[in-house]
Design a protein around this nucleic acid. Structure first.
Lengths: 188, 188
DNA sequence: GATTGTCTACCTTCTAGTAGATAGACTATC
DNA sequence: GATAGTCTATCTACTAGAAGGTAGACAATC
């Protein structure tokens, strides 16, 4: 039972660092010190494992974002929960958002996994949208267009920031993240 | 000689649609109607082909952006050259920026190709930076921080928009692009 | 006659996935 | 409490196919 979680965690890491198509059962088996066949015992095929990774990511992020929203009434503190996750991925210099990795590989990833990841993306966009709507209503955030449109921009920019940061250095990635926040701040 | 260009074009397309690691010499040979061995005659190995793709992309984008900059003195018209390329990739619903595809796959792609792609990224960021600096000086664009920081944000957001658009539909991708422009516009 | 572009036929390595065996832990029954 | 059956997690050993790549032959062209 523990093993299954262990496999899932390493697989998630590999999806974030190398992408779905570029990691193998062999890689997993070496990392975990068990044989490929044992992994097949827990996850029948790579597609099943990929789907499980997507499900786990959705659950984890939903839990983290829900907690962050409930922890305060200040939209800036709420949204910081998302930025903190992005920031830690950038700081790792290896991981990018699994959704980003999957979006980039969308033509290669098995359908059910891709669908779950899109669900994850939509979850984040809705969550962001709610918060910046409050922020605008309270006069502490400014942006053009609808909250959803701006939420999609923030999400896209954050995805890009993680990839940019991994390729060009932590400092540059964090700079983009800072700039996203600056763009939201009122009275320029 | 023509063949070499032909291979390069199809390879570029495959990098954009499937990513470097997820396309094969076999795929290429089927698309082109020649054998794998013939492709090896033109490009000794996959890494060489990948590097050539990156070089071609850099040349193409540099030519397009230079032309766009020279075509006008209006920063909004100049920057539209970049947005038009992003927009056409989004509209294709298949292609994303090759640099984005490579950034997402950075741990998998051969070093020289990755370096060329980073060169390409830096080229675009510098180009954007110059234009929005002019835009701000002329009072037709507004943004917080330095031009470079804002250029990195625009680039990251555009990368994200292409990936978001491919996974969630052309309409959503174009909406993000619109929002990037809106954010740059003064007097909100 | 050398060069260029293509072919067929092959090699090696890696891939996901399968078959079948084994050892240990739980669970019912005698 | 011993016995028999079942379940779980693992193993070794294998398969078929795809991957990148090579060797050498054959025409056509310059």
């Amino acid at each position: 039972m523990d093993r299954k979680q262990e496999i899932l965690e390493v697989a998630t890491e590999l999806v974030q660092t190398h992408g779905y198509s570029a990691f193998s059962y062999h890689d997993l088996s070496e990392r975990l010190g068990i044989t490929k066949a044992s992994i097949h015992h827990h996850f029948a095929g790579k597609a099943d494992l990929g789907f499980a990774v997507a499900e786990k990511c959705l659950q984890d992020i939903a839990a983290a974002l829900t907690a962050s929203k409930q922890s305060s009434n200040d939209p800036w503190k709420q949204i910081e929960g998302y930025f903190a996750i992005v920031s830690s991925d950038i700081r790792s210099q290896e991981r990018i958002c699994p959704a980003g990795s999957t979006q980039a590989d969308i033509n290669v990833v098995p359908e059910p996994m891709a669908e779950k990841m899109i669900e994850l993306v939509q979850y984040i966009v809705s969550w962001l949208s709610d918060i910046i709507k409050d922020g605008r209503d309270q006069g502490v955030m400014t942006f053009p267009g609808t909250p959803r449109e701006q939420a999609e921009l923030i999400f896209s920019a954050a995805q890009g920031a993680m990839q940019y940061g991994r390729a060009n250095g932590e400092k540059r990635g964090l700079s983009v993240l800072k700039q996203i926040k600056a763009t939201l701040k009122p009275k320029r």
